[in-house]
Design a protein around this nucleic acid. Structure first.
Lengths: 336, 336
DNA sequence: CTGAAAGCGCTTACAG
DNA sequence: CTGAAAGCGCTTACAG
């Protein structure tokens, strides 16, 4: 692969000059410039990003950690990040933590070794404590770090999040407002903060509305379509009595809808459903899913803006706290 | 950020020794090793991947180009690639071509500058000719390049693909077998090979079945949910008469199903639908979508295996030609 | 406007 | 088993 030296030889100039025309860092005689460009084209020269990064100490990249690049939830976030990062000419290094502690640590180290100029982290398994310890270590001192979907008071300036407790509350409130009294819940993994918060909001709403919290009406599932299917099946296997279910994400809701159809239960006539996230597919389900909207792309964008703002030492205002919002569609019916 | 020098000073050894214990490239006295490891931990040392890559000429990365990282179609592919690459300790650099020529070129250059050890490309807009020209240029000479979803005879050994013409044929055949005679088609952008092939399969099936191809029964859309919605709407606005539609991907089919519901058309009683891809959500739609399965994750895995095989100079057999397969669910009914 | 030289942070023969 | 030296491919003061 040709190097800057090859180009310089071909153009009969010094490597310094080649560098200057390529980066526009200093004026170069237009004749010389032409020769260099011709050589670059001729040799199909592509600068070595390693060498460049090593000397400039700028990688041009932003590190991103999410759970699973292939989930629709996370790809909505990545898409938001991409939207704002791409126009700047920087790029993303995204690594999956797979919702497991060691892989998440590995992802972090992996990315740090690539010397990103900023980090956008949606950490799932790393504890606040371990994360704060890491923050105090050297690698983290120098670069802007944005936390997505987690709020750590010490880092409030760098967190982008949404009040999931409120989201869970809103979902449940809507069902109660519609006259439902027996409201089940399919939660995500309770090892995840989001799940706990939504469950907590569900519980609080029940209790402040004079309904009692019944833990046998709660099943913990895994945020996947299939686990939603199974959870819903389990409610019926157990002969539970309920007229509505708040399901902690849309993917599980999609699975649950499927199970209900198998069981010949009509939604919303027999069972009302509220999902969470408002992923793209939610409106296309049948019945169109009533859900709590979480503006994932906008949150990704905000995180990216925050990161860029830190890099550019700007002081523009960026929204960091997002509100969950009830999106009413067709999966909830007033309880008669 | 601490460097290998800092570590070596702290451990009172030479940088060479630090390098040796970290990479295990040469035997090191166990006492010394301990000291080094302690220093590494103490300083939270993370080797600079640029420096390492520069000298070893190994980046430990595989470059991937796809259209849009956030689409469910492409993330299925990426997930397949990730599955096989991650266990090797290598990582992915993925860049989006956005289905536009210049961004696709940029993505290619961008990735090449990162000196990947192999390339997995799902090129959409770059012509075969331009691509082959590029292949002949230097950067491409040295590294294994796998083509996903495109077949170039000169590179047959490096292509992973699926016969989309056959897929289009199978979809249409199924509808004809079910007694349909007026079969519409919503195609993807005809600038994309996949779309043309599927359309061609549709057409061939019609003609070999004694039905005539009617171009007014074909609408070109954009492979997005919304464009599927609009296309279906258009058919009705135009007062077209048909009993079935072959829709060139599941995302558009999802949108079309929505439109049909708005229009009070029952699927499959009034209109039968066959989609394409069999994305995860297809089985969860209502009615569950009959579709042509394209094993995207498996194809991604195959591409990754092909890339790794080339890197390791192995000679294992890897499947490169995948077959489209009809998945019968609930969206097609025999035409009475 | 241009070139020679130093240096970024590593690894790897080479020597001992 | 260990260290000194060279070098990977760039950029950037410095000098002219």
């Amino acid at each position: 692969m040709s190097s800057i030296k090859d180009v310089s030889r071909y153009a009969k100039v010094s490597p310094s000059t080649v560098s200057r025309v390529l980066n526009g860092t200093a004026p170069v005689n237009s004749e010389t410039k032409k020769r260099v460009l011709k050589a670059v084209k001729k040799l199909n020269y592509q600068p070595n990003a390693f060498a460049r990064g090593l000397v400039t100490n700028r990688s041009g990249s932003i590190g991103v950690i999410i759970n699973e690049i292939s989930s629709p939830f996370h790809s909505a976030i990545v898409q938001g990040i991409e939207t704002v990062v791409e126009p700047t000419g920087m790029h993303l290094i995204v690594s999956s933590g797979h919702n497991k502690l060691q892989p998440e640590r590995n992802a972090l180290n992996f990315i740090v070794q690539r010397r990103p100029e900023a980090l956008i982290l949606r950490l799932e398994t790393l504890s606040d404590k371990e994360f704060l310890d890491w923050l105090r270590s050297e690698p983290a001192q120098t670069l802007p770090i944005i936390l997505l979907g987690r709020y750590i008071p010490e880092l409030s300036k760098s967190c982008v999040c949404l009040d999931n407790e409120l989201g869970g509350y809103l979902a449940t409130k809507h069902l109660i407002d519609m006259g439902h009294k027996k409201i089940a819940h399919i939660s995500g993994p309770l090892s995840m903060k989001d799940s706990c918060d939504r469950l907590q909001g569900y519980r609080r709403c029940l209790e402040t509305s004079g309904l009692s919290y019944d833990e046998t009406l709660v099943i913990e599932a895994k945020f996947t379509e299939e686990s939603g299917q199974q959870a819903m099946q389990r409610f019926f296997d157990q002969g539970k009595d309920f007229s509505a279910v708040f399901i902690a994400n849309d993917q599980m809701a999609m699975g649950a809808l499927y199970t209900l159809r198998q069981l010949n239960k009509r939604v919303p006539e027999d069972i009302s459903i509220v999902g969470y996230d408002d992923l793209l597919f939610a409106r296309y389900l049948y019945p169109a899913l009533t859900t709590i909207r979480q503006p994932l792309a906008a949150m990704g964008e905000a995180a990216a803006r925050l990161a860029l703002r830190a890099l550019e030492h700007k002081t523009i205002d960026i929204k960091q706290k997002f509100e969950p919002e009830l999106i009413q569609r067709q999966s909830v019916l007033r309880f008669a």
